[in-house]
């Protein structure tokens, strides 16, 4: 973690999350984590270990109990919900295990949803959506309905949707959890490709093989975060 703060997409300092209750649950113990631009970080850990808590915090879906979070050089701690929502929409692209596509809308419209809540012109939104679909190799499936697509295609549409908003960070929650191994492989290849083009990815998984795709891997166990390996030497 020697690079300058300017280069960091995510900088967590002493971030912890405790859920109220009797007794209070320390889902995430105070931890530091810096994700640099162009990183492909995988997060592993058994279920209930705090993976989702970390994802929610990074994704601005939840606020930490303590510590500070700087995203793209902005300290998001003191921001109100409205501002956090705007940052979430602009800076973070989500990829879900269950794809979360609207089944009765063609791929293009699903991807265009990414920019629906921005003040951008329809023409621009259309162009960015086409480009994103092209980027995931689905240029020929632009008008297809998700209900007529294979799982791999669906997840590619979902990834295109996450990319269409041109985010700083791609946040993926078990993106291959619902796919068979061959399809999962191709989706992971796509992630590697995207990463090679400079896109920062955080991928949460419980599968060690999937985790090995990243250039960095952190492990969460009982709310404690440890960096396992760092494989630099990727093309960048």
């Amino acid at each position: 973690m020697s690079s300058s703060a300017d280069d960091a997409v995510v900088q967590l300092t002493g971030v912890a999350r405790t859920y109220e209750g009797f007794p209070p649950v320390e889902a995430l113990k105070p931890c530091d984590l810096t994700i640099e631009r162009g990183d492909f970080l995988t997060v592993v850990g058994p279920s209930g270990s705090g993976k989702s808590t970390l994802l929610n915090l990074i994704g601005l879906l939840d606020r930490p109990t303590s510590g500070s979070y700087v995203l793209d050089g902005v300290d998001v701690g003191p921001l109100d919900e409205r501002q956090r929502t705007a940052i979430r929409g602009h800076r973070i692209g989500f990829v879900f295990q269950t794809f979360q596509l609207l089944p009765h809308r063609p791929a293009l419209e699903n991807v265009m949803m990414a920019t629906l809540y921005r003040a951008s012109a329809r023409g621009d939104r259309l162009a960015s959506a086409r480009e994103a679909l092209h980027g995931v190799g689905l240029a020929h499936r632009i008008g297809a309905l998700p209900s007529r697509m294979s799982g791999g295609e669906r997840q590619r549409v979902a990834i295109a949707r996450a990319l269409a908003g041109n985010p700083s960070l791609l946040l993926c929650d078990e993106p291959t959890g619902n796919l068979d191994s061959a399809t999962a492989e191709s989706v992971l290849d796509l992630f590697s490709q995207l990463n090679a083009h400079g896109i920062t990815i955080v991928l949460i998984t419980h599968d060690g093989e999937v985790a090995a795709r990243g250039n960095r891997t952190v492990d969460i166990r009982d709310g404690r975060l440890t960096e396992l390996s760092r494989r630099d030497g990727r093309a960048s």
């Binding site: 929502t85 929409g89 269950t98 979360q100 629906l116």
Partner: peptide
């Protein structure tokens, strides 16, 4: 619910 969650994560405000 999940569609709403998706829209919220894509930057939709509660009022949207």
């Amino acid at each position: 619910v999940s569609e709403i969650g998706l829209r919220r994560s894509l930057g939709a405000l509660p009022r949207h």
